[in-house]
Design a protein around this nucleic acid. Structure first.
Lengths: 381, 381
DNA sequence: CTGTTAGCGCCTTCAC
DNA sequence: GTGAAGGCGCTAACAG
């Protein structure tokens, strides 16, 4: 502690033992800096954090040593001492299913959410710890979540629902916010879009503006709350219109390939009974990726969209507007979902005692051409 | 320490003080478990890690307490003790520029890389710490990198090059791998695609298969090494063909809007001189996003692609095949890039003394229709 | 203004 | 088999 501090009082720092940052192989600690600068660790800590009450000359000296040694505080140690990690986690559990089309599974959604999270975090400068669990072996899920949860101050969970009791246990230990989760969830805060309103709007548009009467529904996995809401709303809206019926449906996994498979079922059914009313005049999909798959498969079979069959999606991913024909869909503010979820999470991290919150964001019908409208045309019904 | 261990020997765990996980408001520690189980922390630690040398009955008892208490080891403490964080970082620095079109900047690349990283990490179960720095104020960049670097065992840096000296300092403290970085970088390992080969191939295709002779180049930011390589190769290949020339070029930022801006320049120039040879017969873009922007702007101006002007991209993002016309491009294995980069990083984390490595991955010309070929047609030149 | 001194929660070597 | 004890690097009182 009482080392010859004089040895680097002014500018001759580079002379003392391997100071030039060369010896960087070994990580430097607060103690190294303190010793080298001839002060206590408390002072170095104060300087590092730009706190008041340090004589300017001392501060300068310490700063020089920090710079020379290339000192960077270890974040584990900091987290431990100040009991905060300054990291939030974003996790997604991909819906189970055959390992086809891993490529473009449901990630587009997560990625958009991630942007929102990032932007909400940018002021704080906290990074995001991200982990996607694919091909889940149910049992391991909770373990994995635990492990992640130990590395962050709070967790954002998207697209994937743990057994409620697991979620409860998790949320009891650490702040958790569900992105696009069920609004009925009582164990964690939730941010979700108005899925019912959106689904109702497309279906109504198809029926009332285009006179469609034989709808086929391509839904998402039944475990996904947003998929359940959409399906429910679609069925209800159809029921509300006499003469309109659901000719069939398919449970997909929000992947492009699901849309293709659904269409194959439709085509197969057409083969069997040649009564024209077996084939739908509109295919309503629970997300854009499946709509894309459906459209391609339809077109590949020589069926025109929307002339022969209309197709609609949900989400409004970037790609939708670029397709031929441009996709009619329901816009869900994915990015905003991420932002809000992250805001709620930060609030709760700051005060874990906060009352339970659920937030719904609006959706909006985006009419393009795949429904049968043409060009930059008519608005919603 | 010498607590009445008998109180929960068998199954009456739920009786001892608030064991049922209800009191979960306060985080449990190894000590809590040890005390409750009537053993030392060392034993609990052994059990947690499934180590040998623990009497089965003891193990069971400890396990029960762990379960009952909902104990999850704190990762900061673990990191500290075992001097490893089990997290790798992925960072990107978005190229500076006007804050237009933040939406779909260059992220598509990162996201694809992320998938590779994720998959390479999935066996270890390590998560990825991700942080994108936008609207960079140069000075803060290094600070920010330092902060991130303190939270991970190794860093993957994509699309964005720090001043070399900063990189050197960073890499001296912690393993760093550049994704799509300059193969000449000596301070960190690098994984990159064969940008020169790919760029050469498209240009040659345009010239030799389609007889194009007036090329316009829409490049990426000059700070990006991959952008530089592509530009260099394009120019060289043009020079190699007498009678073919570069009618102009534009320095974009890999964003959709850059492609649009570039085309506006082309159109503006056309207004001025009405000599037909002022306008290019092909627009070569340094990535698909810019090609997309260029194509849309061209089409919006009533110019047919590829009939009037051919357009090509680079990367082969998913979207490219879905455009009208489908985009001719150069496939770069982005996902694989992420995988390999991550593998190299893990190697280096395991052994920091490893020799410096640079790895090149192949690119491949993907001929579709925007170049003038039709349907699923002819291969490369 | 600056230094001393406890922890933070876990791992691990070394005794018993 | 199991326990005791010394770190890991930093922060935050609490004294001077």
């Amino acid at each position: 502690m009482g080392l010859p501090r004089s040895c680097l009082l002014q500018g001759d720092i580079t002379d003392s033992e391997r100071l030039t940052g060369r010896g960087s192989s070994s990580a430097r600690t607060l103690y190294d800096v303190a010793r080298e600068a001839g002060v206590s660790t408390a002072t170095v800590s104060r300087v590092m954090h730009g706190q008041e009450g340090v004589r300017p000359s001392t501060r300068r000296r310490v700063l020089e040593v920090i710079e020379a040694l290339g000192y960077v505080p270890d974040s584990s140690a900091q987290s431990m001492a100040r009991r905060r990690k300054e990291v939030v986690g974003l996790v997604a559990i991909e819906s189970r299913g055959p390992q086809t089309e891993i490529e473009h599974e449901g990630l587009l959604f997560i990625e958009e959410v991630l942007r929102g999270v990032e932007s909400s975090l940018s002021s704080l400068g906290w990074p995001v710890l991200i982990s996607v669990r694919r091909a889940a072996d149910d049992a391991g899920d909770y373990q994995w979540l635990q492990k992640i949860s130990a590395k962050v101050d709070g967790l954002l969970i998207a697209e994937g629902i743990e057994p409620p009791e697991d979620l409860a246990r998790l949320a009891a230990r650490i702040p958790v916010v569900l992105v696009s989760g069920s609004p009925d969830e009582r164990h964690a805060d939730v941010v979700h879009a108005d899925n019912r309103g959106g689904a109702t709007a497309v279906v109504r548009h198809l029926i009332e503006q285009h006179g469609k009467s034989r709808l086929y529904y391509v839904g998402g996995p039944h475990e996904a709350p947003d998929a359940r809401q959409r399906r429910g709303a679609v069925e209800e809206e159809i029921a509300r219109h006499p003469g309109v019926r659901l000719t069939g449906s398919f449970e997909g996994r929000f992947a492009t390939v699901s849309g293709q498979l659904a269409v194959r079922e439709i085509l197969a059914a057409r083969q069997l009974s040649d009564r024209g009313d077996a084939v739908p005049d509109a295919v309503v999909c629970a997300n854009d990726q499946m709509a894309l798959g459906a459209m391609r498969e339809l077109q590949a079979a020589g069926i025109r969209v929307p002339a022969d069959i209309a197709v609609t999606g949900f989400d409004d991913i970037y790609l939708g507007a670029l397709l031929a024909p441009p996709l009619t869909t329901v816009r869900q503010p994915m990015r905003r979902l991420g932002e809000r979820a992250c805001d709620l999470l930060l609030d709760r991290i700051a005060d874990p005692a906060l009352p339970h919150r659920v937030e719904q964001l609006p959706t909006e019908l985006v009419v393009r051409e795949s429904c049968g409208c043409h060009g930059p045309a008519a608005g919603p019904a």
